[in-house]
Nucleic acid binder design. Structure first.
Length: 514
RNA sequence: CGGGAUGUAGCGCAGUUCGGUCAGCGCGCACGGUUCGGGUCCGUGAGGUCGGCGGUUCAAAUCCGCCCAUCCCGACCA
């Protein structure tokens, strides 16, 4: 995964805190403010985006900070979301011929050191176990930051012949990278992910696999997560440590910064040579395998939060939402209660098979309170059922993607299931449309360096680049933005490098990134 | 590792300048009532070795020293 200098608006944050102190100490503001609202309020995105992000995650109960620095606890609601992400990906992996397996958490230190670029890239962020059972270990064990090495080691034993190829294995696991600056879901010291590892007889097959899995990621992101992504190749300086070529899907977050949301690597024969992964071909000649690896992590959850969320909280795409529909009954008298709950039973019967439905019949909270709560938690569709609805044999549907009255409509109880699935489809499509429009509205095509510098403060810059590292470095140094990827979709022809004016054969996407 | 800041109830904070009813407020939580179509309102109550250790003092949340933790900036980052 690619990371780059994350300039967050910390100064603002500090300022805010100070401001808040001052307000609190002023006696009149202390008494009359509506403190109840304050307690559950989310910082508006426009005021402080990163604070909004953590507010939403904590208040929606996706995750919480762990007692260990840089680590987080994924709470049941957040884990349910992750499980849906897993399911969507896993289904696609199986459909493309992959099997799941599990490799160990501990990796002998010497393994990591076998591939030169791999060591170089990973050593600064390794967690190393030196003692076990009260004794110093002969050889330190690395807590896996990724598993190319152990898996390569095993592949070298499993693969003898071209008949054994291809090997198509995926594993769902946790990995550890000793990060200095962490953010919930986006970069934590331990995170959950999936890592696919494949071995092939030829470069072409490996390349095909690498691109196939990138397509799988893009398909998932677009169709399940409703996140538009740009597929492309990583620049030399941004590629995976040990890869021949890296590819990624890049998405634009709500603050217009980029987030790499999945990567796929053609590892060439680098790991095959380091781990001796060889096979006999049809001519009885010994050949090195060609391997690939590809991964998507819990970072995807962060992307979902940042792409769709608004100032009321989370907005979850229906395909992935742990709760797709929440029903809130409303009543005053016991009599009404009976009638309303009876209607709720009908709703349940109509929807239970087709959607993930939750009935919130808690009596200790008012309907208004529940509305806010479930909006904060991002439930795509709400059903309100009160006495008036019972009389008219209808319910009120409220769409999360259109807050307030605008998103409400009355539908008859008869045929509710159809109306609900239609609404969910509508919401799913609308989220993707909205995110795509937002991204496109903030994507620029600067042709000179001055406008380029402005563009990367506003969103994505799609610009000609000569491919020189010096130009890339200058951009990074002067604009804090990085090469996100060289998109597959190219205008064709040649242009002038936006930095040096030299001949450029490709355009690249530049942006400030997480 | 360098620079900055913070640590007082589950959460957010006041109190620290000028040591002495300084153990306080709001939210949350528990109980009772009242409300319920967009975060009802009222009452009662539980809850804290003031980050830790040491020092100064008749007296320390408050002053001094050391330590620890967290956050931010920088460095670093497939």
């Amino acid at each position: 995964m690619i990371r780059s200098s994350a300039t967050s608006s910390v100064d603002n944050l500090l300022l805010l805190r100070k401001l808040k102190c001052c307000q609190n100490s002023s006696p009149e503001s202390l008494q009359k403010e509506k403190p109840r609202i304050m307690a559950k309020r989310i910082t508006p995105r426009s005021q402080d985006y990163s604070r909004w992000y953590t507010d939403v995650i904590q208040q929606a109960q996706l995750a919480d900070y762990a007692p260990v620095r840089g680590c987080m606890v994924i709470r049941p609601y957040g884990y349910a979301l992750w499980e849906n992400v897993k399911e969507g990906l896993d289904r696609r992996f199986k459909a493309t011929g992959h099997e799941n397996a599990y490799f160990p958490l501990f990796i002998p230190m010497s393994f990591i050191q076998k591939e030169a670029k791999h060591v170089e890239g990973f050593s600064p962020e390794l967690a190393v176990v030196t003692h076990g059972g009260g004794k110093k270990l002969e050889e330190p064990l690395v807590v896996r930051p990724t598993s190319e090495t152990v898996i390569g080691h095993m592949y070298s034993q499993w693969i003898q012949s071209y008949r054994d190829l291809p090997v198509l294995i995926n594993q769902w696991a946790n990995v550890v990278r000793w990060e200095l600056r962490t953010r919930l879901f986006l970069r934590t010291m331990e995170f959950l992910w999936q890592e696919g590892h494949t071995a092939h007889a030829t470069y072409e097959e490996a390349q095909e696999e690498t691109l196939r899995m990138l397509d799988v990621y893009a398909d998932f992101a677009i169709n399940d997560a409703a996140i538009p992504v740009i597929k492309g190749r990583k620049s030399e300086s941004e590629k995976f440590a040990g890869a021949e070529t890296s590819y990624s899907i890049e998405a634009m977050m709500g603050d217009r910064r980029a987030l790499q949301s999945g990567t796929s690597h053609n590892l060439g024969q680098n790991f095959a040579r380091a781990f001796d992964i060889k096979y006999l071909d049809r001519n009885n000649e010994l050949q090195y395998c060609w391997t690939t690896s590809w991964g998507v992590s819990t970072r995807m959850v962060g992307a979902i939060v940042m792409v769709h969320g608004d100032d009321q909280g989370l907005v979850l795409p229906p395909r992935l939402a742990p709760v797709q529909v929440v029903a809130v009954p409303i009543w005053k008298s016991d009599e009404e209660k009976r009638a309303v709950l009876e209607a709720v039973e009908k709703v349940k019967a109509a929807l239970d098979d087709s959607v993930r439905l939750k009935v919130d019949d808690r009596e200790e909270y008012s309907p208004g309170w529940k509305f806010n709560e479930w909006e904060l938690r991002g439930v795509p569709l709400r059903i309100e059922i009160g006495p008036r609805d019972v009389v008219q044999e209808q319910v009120v549907l409220a769409r999360r993607d259109r807050p307030g009255r605008a998103g409400k409509s009355s539908v008859p109880l008869a045929g509710l299931a159809g109306a609900v699935t239609d609404a969910l489809t509508l919401i799913q499509n609308n989220l993707l449309l909205r995110a795509t429009e937002f991204r496109d509205a903030h994507t620029y095509e600067p042709t000179d360096y001055e406008s380029f510098k402005e563009a990367v403060t506003q969103g994505f810059a799609r610009a000609w680049w000569c491919g020189a590292i010096s130009c890339e470095d200058r951009i990074k140094e002067e604009t804090k933005s990085t090469t996100r990827c060289i998109p597959f979709e190219q205008p064709g022809g040649t242009g002038r490098c936006v930095v040096c004016g030299g001949e450029a054969k490709e355009v690249a996407i530049f942006a400030r990134a997480y």
